[in-house]
């Protein structure tokens, strides 16, 4: 677990750049590669050895554990947009959104120092505590609506989720995977992407280009679902940061006055 500690220390760098749509997946999976050699040399078995002792919990069964499985196709986002009922520790029943329900599960599964406060809040007014918790963890209300655009209508929940145990994923051969092994599932259809990911070409690896130079630290390679929402995997568009300001007037864009003014001010080429 020594490697995990290091990954946690480095992880804010990653989280700062994460598009909002994938915020839900932040706490799920953080894979660390504590290799002595550059990450390109790693094999699948090495990777599994590293991630197998990490997060295996996912809260689906908290709600779905005692429900019968519907095998008929239906609109996924409609299923999760209805308010859910949640009974808190005091026995009070609350109406919560799907995102809030998920946050409650995470709060119970991953107690942090911060949660002492939200636990207290939970007793007086659950929704206030949960809202703060969601904000604290970068979860937004949009995360609570899941839209399945993946596969263009050709795949369904049970292609990836296990029919009996909702806390597990399932491969085509029936092998069950925990949520932190999801790349093996993705790779069943996206083989070339998985191969490139293993080599470090596809995806994002941060930290050290040369792990040998400082063996105490690690590189972190993001898993598929940390960048791609598995239900809507297209990379989200974002606002570009401000453009450079030209000191050379641009033809047809900047007014001629600007150009004259710029020369008076001793304007130079933007070198």
């Amino acid at each position: 677990m020594e490697h995990l500690g290091n990954a946690r220390r480095l992880s804010p760098i990653l989280h700062g750049t994460k598009p909002a749509a994938s915020g839900l997946w932040i706490p799920l999976i953080l894979m660390t590669l504590g290799m002595a050699a550059p990450a390109a040399g790693l094999t699948t078995s090495d990777r599994l050895a590293v991630i197998s002792d990490q997060l295996g919990y996912y809260p689906c069964m908290d709600c779905h554990g005692d429900q019968a499985t519907y095998t008929q196709p239906r609109i996924l986002e409609e299923e999760h947009v209805e308010p859910l009922l949640y009974t808190d520790t005091e026995g009070v029943v609350h109406q919560v959104t799907f995102g809030e329900r998920l946050a409650i599960s995470q709060l119970i599964a991953e107690p942090k120092a911060w949660d002492l406060r939200s636990e207290m809040l939970a007793k007086v007014g659950l929704s206030i505590g949960i809202r703060e918790y969601m904000e604290f963890n970068g979860l937004s209300e949009e995360d609570s609506v899941w839209v399945l655009t993946h596969g263009g209508g050709n795949i369904w929940c049970l292609n990836c989720h296990d029919i009996e145990d909702r806390n597990k994923l399932v491969k085509l051969n029936g092998e069950k995977l925990t949520f932190n092994q999801s790349q093996l599932l993705c790779g069943e259809c996206h083989g070339p992407a998985l191969h490139d990911w293993e080599l470090g070409i596809h995806g994002k690896t941060t930290g050290y280009w040369n792990l040998a130079m400082d063996s105490g630290d690690v590189s972190i390679r993001k898993l598929c679902v940390e960048c791609h929402n598995p239900h809507a995997p297209a990379f989200a568009s974002m606002q570009a940061l401000p453009p450079p300001v030209s000191r050379i007037p641009r033809r047809g864009v900047d007014a001629p006055e600007t150009a004259a003014e710029d020369r008076e001010n001793g304007g130079h080429g933007h070198e």
């Binding site: 760098i13 750049t17 994460k18 598009p19 050699a37 550059p38 990450a39 390109a40 040399g41 080599l199 470090g200 070409i201 596809h202 995806g203 994002k204 690896t205 941060t206 930290g207 280009w209 040369n210 993001k222 960048c227 990379f235 974002m238």
Partner: peptide
């Protein structure tokens, strides 16, 4: 390290296992 898309790759050209050589 900041790139949100993982488009940027860096490494040692002389190391045949490096991502650049791959």
């Amino acid at each position: 390290d900041i790139c949100p898309t993982g488009s940027r790759k860096f490494g040692n050209l002389l190391d045949e296992n490096s991502v650049i050589r791959q």
